[in-house]
Computed example of a mutant assay.
Amino acid sequence: MALDEVELATLNVPDEPRMRARLAELTHPGGVELQPADTYEARDPSGFVIVTVNKSAKVTKVRIRPRWTDHIRPEAFPAALYNTYVTALQRALAVELAHRPRTPPHTPAPDAGLLDTAELSVDEFLSRTRARREAINARYDEIRRGQQAPPAEFHEVRSPLGYLTLRMRGGGPMALNGDPHALDNPSEEVLGEDALQLFVRAGLGVAGQARPTPERATRGSANQADDEYFSEFNVLKDED
């Protein structure tokens, strides 16, 4: 779903120091305020896993820096990648909503139920009462159908090379798993491309041009990373 389709006009965050600090990390990484952009990037705490998403909340790039196994255990890699993906989504949503123009507060129309019934004719009073009762009954039936509907089933999506498996429910990602022994073998670019194609297969990414398999690169310097993802800022949710 594109971020411009989100109905929230403003970003409401509880006025609590820890929450405000986490929001600042999303919108002001390194103390620099982010402006709305075509893509948004997040890094894991080590700085060796980088995920980029676009304004439509689709993954466009997964980069794994050389010698990542010196900083992340292979068995911890799936969680690091998943949390970094979530942080990228949260950053995109937070920045977009923080810069959305404010709209005047909506003044709700007077509730027909608050009108002085003495001013209504008998026919109009009965018509209003019947319409209100039908609306309440319709809402009750909707709620009851939702409660009776079977929960969405889990299913799994495997990456093309089989390094990673994404657990899905109701169209949304729930967890990311992988084989630690297999994850210790591929080159960084092969693993990054396999991760990107996993998101593409799951409908959560955008396919890019195929890249050749490189030789294992030399060690690079670590960049400043995002902290663990902002769990309180809920972006992912099951589709209705």
Score class of each variant (00 low, 15 high):
R22P: 04
A175K: 12
D184Q: 10
A152P: 09
R67P: 03
E239P: 01
P78H: 10
R43Q: 06
S221T: 12
A207W: 02
F154A: 14
L114V: 03
D15M: 13
F48P: 00
A76Y: 06
L120S: 03
G30P: 14
A131G: 01
S127C: 02
V206Y: 00
L204T: 05
P173Y: 06
Q35I: 03
E228L: 09
V200E: 05
E156C: 05
D44H: 02
R144G: 00
A80P: 03
K58I: 00
F125Y: 04
G30R: 15
S56D: 14
R158N: 15
R145Q: 11
Y40M: 08
E188S: 04
A42H: 06
K61L: 15
T27I: 15
Q197L: 15
A24D: 15
L191H: 00
E239L: 10
G171S: 11
R133I: 02
L8R: 04
L8K: 02
F233Y: 12
L11Q: 01
M19N: 02
P110W: 00
V59P: 00
E189M: 10
M1Y: 07
N234S: 10
L115A: 07
E7C: 08
P104T: 08
N223Y: 06
S127Q: 05
A80V: 03
E134D: 07
A217V: 03
I72D: 06
E124G: 03
F233A: 05
A76H: 14
L183F: 12
L23R: 05
S56T: 01
R133P: 00
D240Y: 12
R219C: 14
G113P: 00
E156H: 14
G162S: 12
P150C: 07
D238V: 13
